[in-house]
Design a protein around this nucleic acid. Structure first.
Length: 587
DNA sequence: GCCGTTTTCGGCCCGACTGTTTTCAGTCG
C-alpha cells in the first residue's frame, strides 16, 4: 500500500464517521467506510490511477462519487466535501467515537445537548455527572466508558501478529485442556494472517459452556470482563504488558464450521458470501447456510435444517466455490479464483531453503555449525550464510578480510554435511546512493548476494527510488532483502514504487524478499501482489539470528499467500538443483 | 453512496450482549 492510499483511506474513514455524526443514511455511511477499506487494501497507488478515472470506477466499492473525490485529491491535494464536513462537525468527536461502547447515536446526543466536542469535554461531563442526564445512561454505563477511555490510552490500536499469536495460542491451549472441550480454535484477522490484529477471537464447541466461560473469564491476565453471556464472553487482558481484548464465542459443534467462517471474516468477505447465498435463495449466518424462506425469525431458531454448517469446506462447496483459505478472505477478488490457483499457493511445508541467516560472526546467536544443524532440523536442502557487511558496524559487520575467511569456513563446512548445501553469501548493505558495500570482485566470490537497506531509511521517495533501482538492475544481486526497511512501531521505511522496482528486478532475475520477521513483514501482502503482476520472483526468508526466528516462517508464508504467491514463484520452494542453477552455483 | 445472472431504481447481512428498561435501543463484530 502506498502512503497516499493510507492517507486517502483515512480521509474516507473520517468522512464516514463525520457523516454518521451528521445523521446521514447508514447505507451512505457504510459506502464511505467500504470505500476506505477498499482503498486501504488496494495494491496500486490510487492517486496515480486517478489519471484514468475509469480504472478507479472499475474497482468494487468505488463508484462515481468516490472516484471523483480521488481525482480531486490527486489534482488538488484536497477533497472539498471533506473540508466542508470538518467545518460542520468538530474533529475531536472522531476521538470520542473511538471509545469502545460509545457509538454515533450517543456521541451525537452529547454533542447536541451538552456541547461535547472532544475527549476533554467528555471527561468534563463524566466528572461533573451531567452525562447521567442522557437517556439510557446510568452509573454502570458511565463506569464502562471511564475504563474504556483508560484502555484506549493504554493499548496500541493494533497488535503485531507476532505478539498476538502466542497469546492466542496460550488461551487456546488452556481451553483445550478442559475435558468438556470438543473443538477450539482462534479466528479473526489472526487466522487470516494479517500483519496486525485488533482483538483475539476464540471459538469453542463444548459440552460444558459454563466451565469454558469460567476458565476464560478468570484467567490471571484478565483485567476486566466486558461481557459474559450464553454465547459470548469478552475480556480485556494484559499479557506481559500487552493490553489486548479477547472474545470467546460458544458455538454448537454442529455449526462450528459456519461460526469459524463467520468469525474469521473478513467482514467484507462475509458480506460477499451472504450476497451470493441470497442469489441462490439461501441465507448464510454463523449457524449455517439455510434455505431462504422469507421468514422474519432466524432459521436455526425454528429448527430449519441447514444445507451446510459443520465445516467451512462444506459451506464453500454448497456455495459453489473452492474452499478459500483464510489468508485470502479480504474481498480482493478471491471469489473469482479457480481451485487450482488456491492449491498452488505457497505453504510452510513447501519452504525448503533458508537464504538469509546470520552467525555469531556478526549479530547472530548461533555459530556456523549450530546454524547449519538448525537448518537441517528445519528440513532445508539449502542454507545461505549471509552475515552483515562492513558498513553495519553496530552489528560487527564483516570486513572484506573477515568475509573471505568466512567464505573459506563455509566451503569447509559444506564438505562436512551431506544432508544440506551450505552456500556462502552476504547480506550486503545498500548504501544511500544505491551502490553495494563490497567491491565487485569480492561479491563475485559469493554464491548468494542479499542486498538490503539498513540506514538512510528516511530518504525522499525520489532518492529512495534511485537507490533501489540501482540495486534492482545490479547483475551481482540475487535477492533484495526487506526492500522498504520498515519496522512496526519504529519507522515506516522507504516509500517505493514497487511496480517499477519489481519490473526491473524481474528483468534482471532478482528476487524480492518477504522478510518473515513479524516486526518487518517486508514485502507486505499488497507489495507481493504488485511484484507478482510485474513478473518478479519472491523469496521468503526468516533472517535467522536465533533458533526462535525460524518460528516466524509462518508469518512470511501467510503474507505471501495473502499476496496470492504461488509456490512456483517462490524460490525457497524450488528443488535444490533448480535453485542452485538459478543462483549460478555448481554443487 | 454503490450496485445489477430479474434491476439504472430500490434495495442494501445478521445476530448477541448490556444496561436500562418493563420491551428495547445502542453497540459491536
Amino acid at each position: 500500500m502506498s502512503s497516499s492510499n493510507a492517507h486517502l483511506a483515512q480521509i474516507f474513514e473520517d468522512m464516514a464517521h463525520l457523516l454518521e455524526l451528521q445523521g446521514a443514511s447508514r447505507f451512505r455511511v457504510n459506502a464511505y467506510a467500504r470505500a476506505a477499506r477498499t482503498i486501504k487494501g488496494h495494491g496500486d497507488d490510487l492517486v496515480s490511477l486517478a489519471e484514468d478515472p475509469k480504472s478507479l470506477k472499475a474497482i468494487d466499492g468505488i463508484g462515481d462519487s468516490t472516484a471523483d473525490k480521488i481525482v480531486e485529491f490527486a489534482e488538488t491535494g484536497r477533497i472539498e466535501a471533506y473540508d466542508k464536513l470538518l467545518k460542520d462537525v468538530p474533529s475531536g468527536l472522531l476521538d470520542v467515537l473511538r471509545i469502545p461502547g460509545l457509538g454515533p447515536k450517543t456521541v451525537k446526543l452529547m454533542w447536541d445537548d451538552m456541547q461535547v466536542e472532544s475527549l476533554t469535554d467528555l471527561q468534563r461531563v463524566i466528572d461533573d455527572g451531567s452525562i447521567l442526564s442522557l437517556p439510557r445512561m446510568g452509573k454502570k454505563t458511565v463506569e464502562n466508558i471511564r475504563s474504556a477511555i483508560a484502555f484506549v490510552s493504554s493499548a496500541d490500536d493494533r497488535t503485531p501478529i507476532g505478539i498476538a499469536r502466542p497469546i492466542a495460542d496460550t488461551i487456546v491451549r488452556r481451553l483445550k485442556r478442559l475435558k468438556s472441550t470438543k473443538q477450539v480454535q482462534y479466528a479473526g484477522s489472526l487466522r487470516r494472517g494479517a500483519e496486525t490484529i485488533g482483538d483475539i477471537d476464540v471459538l469453542i464447541a463444548t459440552s460444558n459452556p459454563e466451565q469454558a466461560r469460567e476458565t476464560f473469564t478468570t484467567m490471571a491476565e484478565v483485567t476486566q470482563i466486558l461481557a459474559n453471556g450464553e454465547t459470548k464472553a469478552s475480556v480485556r487482558t494484559e499479557f506481559d504488558g500487552v493490553a489486548i481484548q479477547a472474545d470467546l464465542r460458544l458455538v454448537p459443534e454442529a455449526s462450528f464450521g459456519a461460526a469459524l467462517m463467520y468469525f474469521t471474516g473478513s467482514k467484507e468477505h462475509n458480506v460477499r458470501l451472504r450476497e451470493r447465498a441470497l442469489r441462490q435463495d439461501r441465507t448464510l449466518n454463523e449457524y449455517g447456510l439455510f434455505p431462504d424462506d422469507d421468514k422474519e425469525s432466524p432459521p436455526q431458531s425454528r429448527g430449519v435444517k441447514p444445507v451446510a454448517s459443520q465445516t467451512e469446506a462444506e459451506i464453500y462447496t454448497a456455495l459453489d466455490l473452492p474452499e478459500i483459505p483464510p489468508e485470502l478472505r479480504e474481498d480482493r477478488g478471491e471469489l473469482k479464483l479457480a481451485a487450482a490457483d488456491i492449491e498452488s499457493l505457497v505453504t510452510v511445508a513447501g519452504i525448503r531453503a533458508e537464504l538469509h541467516a546470520h552467525t555469531t560472526e556478526t549479530d547472530g546467536k548461533l555459530t556456523l555449525d549450530e546454524l547449519i544443524e538448525h537448518a537441517i532440523e528445519r528440513g532445508c536442502h539449502t542454507l545461505a550464510v549471509t552475515d552483515h557487511s562492513q558498513s553495519s558496524a553496530l552489528v560487527n559487520g564483516l570486513s572484506p578480510k573477515r568475509l573471505r575467511a568466512q567464505i573459506k569456513a563455509v566451503r569447509q563446512a559444506n564438505d562436512r554435511y551431506r544432508e544440506i548445501t551450505v552456500l556462502a553469501g552476504s547480506e550486503v548493505d545498500i548504501l544511500p546512493d544505491g551502490s553495494l558495500d563490497y567491491d565487485d570482485d569480492l561479491l563475485d566470490e559469493l554464491d548468494v548476494v542479499v542486498a538490503s537497506p539498513h540506514a538512510s531509511l528516511r530518504q525522499t521517495p525520489a532518492e529512495a527510488m534511485k537507490r533501489m533501482m540501482a540495486v534492482a538492475t545490479n547483475p551481482r544481486v540475487n535477492i533484495i532483502g526487506h526492500p522498504t526497511g520498515r519496522r512496526f512501531g519504529t519507522r515506516p521505511g522507504l516509500e517505493l514504487d514497487m511496480a517499477e522496482i519489481a519490473a526491473a528486478a524481474a528483468a534482471h532475475d532478482i528476487a524480492l524478499e518477504i522478510n518473515a520477521h513479524w516486526r518487518r513483514l517486508d514485502l507486505r501482502d499488497t507489495h507481493v501482489r504488485i511484484a507478482l503482476e510485474a513478473g518478479a520472483l519472491i523469496a521468503i526468508d526468516c533472517d535467522v539470528h536465533s533458533r526462535e526466528h525460524s518460528d516466524n516462517l509462518i508469518y512470511g508464508v501467510q503474507t505471501g499467500r495473502r499476496g496470492g504467491l504461488p509456490a512456483s514463484r517462490c524460490i525457497n520452494t524450488w528443488s535444490a538443483s533448480k535453485l542452485h542453477k538459478w543462483l549460478g552455483v555448481t554443487t
